[in-house]
Amino acid sequence: MSDQDALAQALAVAEAQAAEAEAELRAAPASAGRGHAPGAADALVSITAYPNGPLLVRGPFEILTPDGTVIPPGRKTVALCRCGVSTLKPFCDGSHKAVRFRTEAEPPDNAPPALD
């Protein structure tokens, strides 16, 4: 086996292990009810909208294709493209800066009107 093959194999093994570890990670907190068991904070997924940039997602999330295939996140915190020009979608690759992507200064006021 050449060095290159050995490296390729090592890379494949590492990726399989990562997928396994990530699957375990996803399975674990799902059973913890929101706001109850210790560690419940970990069960919440948070999405932070970074101005003029991507959405950062933290927590026990999974990203799927429409047919349900898992897209490996590769890291704990991911940045999802919302400018549309990333070449790594759904992930951000920093291209939003080159196209001067701008988000609104304030989040929309989408609370329903108060009842009379």
Partner: peptide, 17 residues
């Protein structure tokens, strides 16, 4: 191939985060 380029490809995504 990917064994050599993976470091750089990984950084495109990581550093955007």
């Amino acid at each position: 191939d990917k064994n050599v380029t993976y470091y750089f490809d990984e950084h495109v995504e990581a550093d955007a985060v």
